Amino acid sequence: MTPTSVTHIDQRYIDGLLENNGQVIREIYTRFAAKVERYIVNNSGSEQDAGDIFQEALTAIYEQARHKQLRLTCPFEPFLLMVCKRKWLNELKKRSHQPVTKQREEVYNNIGEDVFAMAEQLEQQEEKAQLFLQMFRKLGEKCQEIIRHSLKGEHQEKVATALGVTYGYLRKKKSECLATLMKLIQSHSQY
């Protein structure tokens, strides 16, 4: 985990939607539409429903990018599939269909991989990373610098030399800084 969020290389899909780039939009449909269709058909929907949900999801992503400068920090596929899944579950609630889902194993076998669970996991990781970053910024500069070096996996002897402190001081200060960071994170309402 790093103290700054890095834009994922798949941001090109978001940029392609914003620019109405036909080649990128065709690639999105070619690569991802079939998975969404399988999920929706296996969960009380039709091919028409899948097409509608896919289009609504792309429109929602486009609007987020256009009005809120959406930046991807995860792969596009699980993000898109998560948006589609949520839109479909909301649609099912409106229609009051039962059952909402089939057996997990059956759905997963049809999708080929559990990208929907991966999307939810990525969302949770992103929330945790944002909380970490928010609390990290509350630390003093010295603590931020020590933790930054630690996250890079550098040897403590080298870090101590680079910071102009003794090895013993660095170890003690690092422990104090991490304890403070953990207290900040644990005291936050998101935790």
Rank of each mutant, 00 (worst) to 15 (best):
L17P: 15
S46F: 02
L89G: 01
L18V: 11
K94W: 01
K93I: 02
E27N: 09
V165G: 05
T2N: 15
A65G: 10
Q23Y: 12
L184E: 11
Q64R: 14
L18D: 13
E176Q: 13
L139V: 07
F136Y: 15
E123N: 06
R104Q: 03
E91I: 01
K128P: 00
L89S: 04
Q23K: 15
I28T: 10
R104T: 05
L131E: 08
V165C: 13
I14D: 06
V41F: 08
E157M: 11
R12T: 13
L80K: 04
H188N: 14
R86V: 03
R38M: 08
A160T: 11
A50K: 05
A179I: 11
Y108I: 13
C143R: 03
F54S: 10
T180W: 04
V115E: 10
M135N: 10
R38S: 07
S96F: 00
Y62G: 08
V115F: 02
D49I: 02
T180I: 05
Q125S: 04
Q125P: 01
D52E: 12
Q23L: 11
Q103G: 00
G164Q: 10
T30R: 00
L184Q: 09
C74N: 05
T161G: 12
Y13F: 15
R171Q: 13
H67C: 10
T180C: 10
K94F: 01
I53L: 04
L131K: 04
E27V: 07
M135S: 07
I14M: 09
S175R: 11
Y29Q: 09
L163D: 12
T7W: 07
Q186S: 15
M182S: 13
L163A: 07
M82C: 04
F79C: 04
